[in-house]
Nucleic acid binder design. Structure first.
Length: 646
RNA sequence: GCCUGCGUAGCUCAGUAGGUAGAGCACUUCGUUGGUAACGAAGAGGUCACCGGUUCAAUCCCGGUCGUAGGCUCCA
């Protein structure tokens, strides 16, 4: 057999016999990392056991690299499947991919797993790891693979094979008694998988379709080093602490009541302050760029939604109709048709465009019970909604204007991780999910794409996610605990204005139909505040905080002085309160810290004598001594400028 | 909507092999007048989510309903 030349990244070129495996190279050549579990040959990830017969470049990777970690996670999923098959031999396996830092495997199992079962599975996994079984693979023909999986009654695998492209090579990975259809690659041995933890189990539908069999999904994680595993688990614990549902309760911002209904949040005085601040911000920004504010009713006849197409497309997520004097009325699920009515109420000329209507109304949607989630998915939502009616010529500027508004908000809140997603129609869904006019779709999508490119905004595209009436831009953000949400949305509507027979008189006297841009840069107030709670971990900037200042007298003797300060601040529009309980100062400070109040004003003998205040800011050890006037004016500026820090 | 788990005081949670319950914090009162993350004492608080069934007896066992958690599916 002839020799081949292999360039080992970071080490140099070596000559080997053809047919050598990376595993053999690893043991023959010094300096390759001991923990290497996988390698890249000419940029594709390959098992360490595969034979090399050509000159190439090879890079060994351990599980601390991104690719290596993915492989480790994937192999851990297989390890888990093997453990499950040992403990519950009747289980049928399905699929087990990796995610960021996690993996899962879906099983068709007789009885769902309990927490104890997960512990047992984990133990069995440890055993298989200790057995240090070689993980090998064989390439099989379609027929061989089908025969094999039929013989071992893995019907889901059979189904998968039948769906795979006929030309694709099928690989069967084996470790001990366990074999699985898989593209791979995998770590060389079960002994390479040492530090893992099963996280949770839940149900999942086969192929994600609710009509299919319910499977049991087990999530887990796995790392090369015990330290990294611990770090990740800690991170998960930390994330729980920032959950908006937990902080929302602790800071008394909102709650749900069984007698009111799921998904219908009640905002307490603290939470309502935040909504008011958000609205004040939005009004300020919108007033500057020419939005006109309107108000529309919460109830509307069904006829309107027939016309708009919403009844046809979204009836399953609208509250059922109520009969009013023999006519069907619906809770309003969105504002657009009402705004269209307002547009149409008086004749419009090209001089009126762009015509921008905004509304902070409450909409009601019947989200399925299992979809409700804290403030992020609710059934009554306050929209930061607006519709811009414009001509085709104006479209680009208006669209970019809206995107810029997003950016402005993001800057105010210190949101720097976001992604714009241009959602396009799916040609297959025309006439069904989407308005049936492919030319108009393509043209509008191209217009939006160009507008984004001209504004130098980065975006990704997503086919099939458009609204029924036009393409949209969704802005995805990640809360500090890694949850991804669609926060802002911006949709182009080329269909509904026509249905509503909206028109304006153009310069030449002809009637034209305007385009409509639907936009909600702050999404819903509920979701936005939910996001902000996690983003700030409850430590809101001063302007947004429900409780900005608390006055803490050192003893009852200084209550009068404290009260004077409190009254002054309140008169100046600062959200200030007074803690005049007979508690020691340390206790009052502790309580204020737990309530995450931004500023504590401490007053005792010293302060009364010198007519000053001692200012203790959240998280800041150094205190300031200021006069009441100095303090008031400085925080008023901080509030007015909506500073993010602290 | 689907699968599984959970539901005890305002909050965080104990507990009862079936005999109607307990702690800490918060709250109220009294004492204390204290200088940077918990002063002390006393008191008040619960139809053990709701509705049925089994039982002499149910917060506990069984069934249903509602709510909630983790996911799946969905999101104008």
């Amino acid at each position: 057999m002839s020799d081949i030349l292999i360039n080992i990244k970071g080490i140099g070129e070596h000559s080997f016999r053809s047919g050598i495996t990376p595993l053999e190279i690893k043991s023959e050549v010094k300096g390759i990392q001991k923990n290497a579990i996988i390698c890249k040959i000419n940029d594709s990830l390959v098992d360490l056991s595969s034979k090399i017969s050509k000159d190439c470049e090879i890079q060994f990777l351990d599980a601390q690299s991104k690719d290596g970690h993915s492989v480790l996670l994937h192999s851990t999923a297989h390890l888990m499947a093997q453990a499950v098959k040992r403990l519950y031999p009747k289980t049928k396996v399905t699929i087990g991919p990796y995610l960021d830092n996690r993996f899962y495997y879906d099983f068709d199992v007789e009885t769902p797993f309990t927490e104890e079962d997960l512990k047992e599975i984990e133990k069995e996994m440890q055993k298989i790891s200790d057995e240090n079984l070689d993980i090998s693979h064989e390439v099989k023909s379609r027929k061989e693979a089908l025969d094999f999986f039929e013989k071992i009654s893995e019907s889901y695998k059979v189904e998968i094979i039948n769906d795979i492209d006929k030309d694709e090579l099928l690989k069967v990975y084996s470790q001990g008694e366990f074999s699985d259809l898989c593209r791979g690659p995998h770590v060389p041995s079960t002994g390479d998988i040492k530090h893992f933890k099963l996280l949770s189990s839940s149900a999942a539908y086969w192929r994600g379709d609710e009509k299919n069999q319910t499977l049991q999904r087990v999530y887990g994680t796995s790392f090369q080093n015990p330290k990294d595993l611990k770090k990740y688990l800690n991170q998960l614990e930390e994330q729980k602490k920032r959950d908006h549902r937990k902080i929302g309760k602790e800071l008394d911002l909102y709650f749900y009541d069984e007698e009111i209904g799921p998904g219908l949040p009640l905002w307490t005085p603290n939470g309502a302050v935040m909504i008011d601040e958000l609205e004040a911000l939005a009004k300020e920004k919108e007033d500057k760029v020419g939005y006109l504010r309107v108000k529309t009713p919460h109830l509307t006849k069904g006829l309107l939604y027939e016309k708009s197409g919403h009844l046809e497309h979204y009836i399953s997520s609208m509250y059922p109709a109520m009969d009013v004097d023999g006519t069907d009325y619906y809770m309003k699920p969105m504002n657009c048709p009402h705004h269209h009515k307002i547009f149409a109420n008086t004749p419009k000329s090209y001089r009126d465009l762009p015509y921008r209507l905004s509304e902070y109304g409450t909409c009601y949607r019947y989200e399925k019970s299992g979809e409700l989630f804290g403030l992020m998915r609710v059934r009554s939502m306050q929209m930061n909604d607006a519709h811009i009616y414009c001509s085709e010529d104006q479209f680009k500027d208006e669209f970019i204007g809206v995107c810029n508004l997003y950016m402005e908000y993001f800057k105010i809140f210190g949101i720097d991780k976001y992604e714009m997603r241009l959602s396009l129609h799916d040609p297959k869904g025309l006439g069904d999910k989407f308005i049936n006019n492919s030319e108009l779709w393509l043209k509008t999508e191209e217009d939006v794409r160009n507008a984004l490119k001209d504004a130098k905004l980065k975006f990704v595209e997503s086919v099939g996610d458009a609204a029924f009436y036009g393409p949209k831009i969704d802005v995805q953000v990640w809360s500090s605990i890694g949850r991804e949400f669609t926060l802002a949305t911006n949709q182009v509507d080329f269909a509904v204005p026509e249905r509503f027979d909206l028109h304006y008189t153009d310069t030449d006297g002809s009637a034209k139909t305007p385009l409509c841009i639907h936009r909600a840069p702050l999404g819903t107030h509920e979701r936005f505040i939910g996001f902000l709670i996690e983003h700030f971990g409850g430590n809101f900037p001063l302007w947004l905080a429900p409780k900005q200042v608390i006055i803490l007298p050192v003893s009852d003797k200084y209550n009068d002085y404290a009260e004077k300060i409190n009254n002054h601040l309140k008169a100046e529009g600062v959200r200030s309160s007074l803690d005049d309980r007979s508690e020691k100062i340390g206790s009052k400070i502790r309580d204020a810290e737990l309530q995450k109040i931004n500023i504590m004003v401490i007053v005792g003998e010293k302060e009364v004598d010198s007519n000053t205040l001692t200012i203790r800011r959240r998280f800041i050890k150094e205190q300031e001594v200021l006069s009441l006037e100095q303090f008031t004016s400085s925080i008023k500026i901080e509030i007015k400028e909506r500073r993010v820090s602290n």
